[in-house]
Write a protein that binds this DNA or RNA. Structure first.
Lengths: 191, 191
DNA sequence: TGTAGCATGTAAGCCGTTACATGATTGA
DNA sequence: TCAATCATGTAACGGCTTACATGCTACA
């Protein structure tokens, strides 16, 4: 039970836990990747396929998931389901106060803006406007996800987290728009 | 010049570029770590000492920085300065439109809230309030950094990025506070 | 006198990515 | 029939962390 898994492992375990509460079939590695791309990606990462399989093997080895081979008529595939031990392990992690770590932000735009004095005002402005475009794209993607979550009670937590993400994108947009105006208003560098 | 460095390398190069514009002495690996802890940490990462030395060796090998050994009377140390090639390389990276990538957010609190249905409402609330505390601490740290940046023109970009960070922390606080209220208002799970 | 801070590194190992490799099934 | 999608893996490698190892210097 004291498994010391990576957050990504727990994230996958969470997807399987959610699946278990709605169906009984289990998920393939491929399906897990798709779900991760839909939700996890916005708040964590979207692991590569190869990592998902590695992670699943690890979870399997610890008895936190079980895999059943399906090959009747169809092409062979492994369907994974969470075990009672896996669920217990996930719950323990969820409620462990020590695990509540601070978010890690890797913000290439902020990093580069930090050195804005080395670039021309035009380059800086282009960078920010490009970021705003991508931000809008990302937001549209998350909005589509949010709509799929409708108002079903089983998904009220995912829906809230999606709302969180949307608010974050809006705030980021407002901040960057203000920043652009400030930079445009400022007298150019005296070099 | 087409060096294919990691963003962390560029970040260190940026710190050295900034140092070069204000003094001439160069910085030790140790000093770079301190500066990274002060600023970079909020928007990128704070690399471990060992990584800083590794990164510096790499930059040195490519001629993007030069190191001078200082050992007169004092304990021996290596002082690093950015070279003209290093500065050109940094500028090229800064203005390269392809490099403008989207931020990566690893948000353990959002990740866990996604599975909030598996925990008790009390555990969820505790997690969020703990997050708010840490958020306030982090914000206070960044405020201290912001004050050090005063209104000097040489640091106007770092100051703006610090303001960005502060706005982000405020927005995050508002969102999480609203979230807590919503969860508290909601009827408990019917399990 | 001793401890905190300055200063530099090596080694092991994890997490995660990209590239590579394979092959079945569905549908246009 | 051919391309897209489903499906599963291995190998190599990069980035970053932790742990380990060393030793000087300022100052209380």
């Amino acid at each position: 039970m004291t498994a010391e898994l990576s957050p990504t492992s727990y994230a996958l375990l969470g997807l399987l836990a959610f699946d278990a509460s709605t169906s009984e079939s289990g998920l393939t590695g491929y399906e897990l990747k798709q779900r991760a791309d839909r939700t996890l990606r916005f708040y964590w990462v979207s692991p590569a396929m190869s990592q998902i399989y590695t992670e699943l093997d690890r979870l399997d080895g610890r008895g936190l998931v079980v895999s059943t081979d399906v090959s009747e008529g169809k092409r062979p595939s492994r369907h994974f389901s969470i075990t009672p031990e896996g669920l217990a392990c996930l719950r323990a992690w969820l409620t462990d106060p020590d695990e509540s770590l601070f978010p890690t932000l890797k913000h290439p735009v902020a990093l580069r803006l930090l050195m804005g004095a080395l670039a021309s005002p035009e380059d800086v402005d282009r960078m920010l406007s490009q970021y705003l475009e991508r931000l809008a794209e990302r937001k549209a993607e998350l909005e589509a996800v949010r709509e799929m979550l409708a108002d079903r009670r089983e998904v009220r937590f995912p829906a809230r987290v999606a709302d969180w993400g949307l608010s974050y994108y809006e705030s980021e947009r407002d901040i960057v728009e203000r920043l652009r105006e400030q930079i445009a208003a400022e007298p150019p560098d005296a070099t």
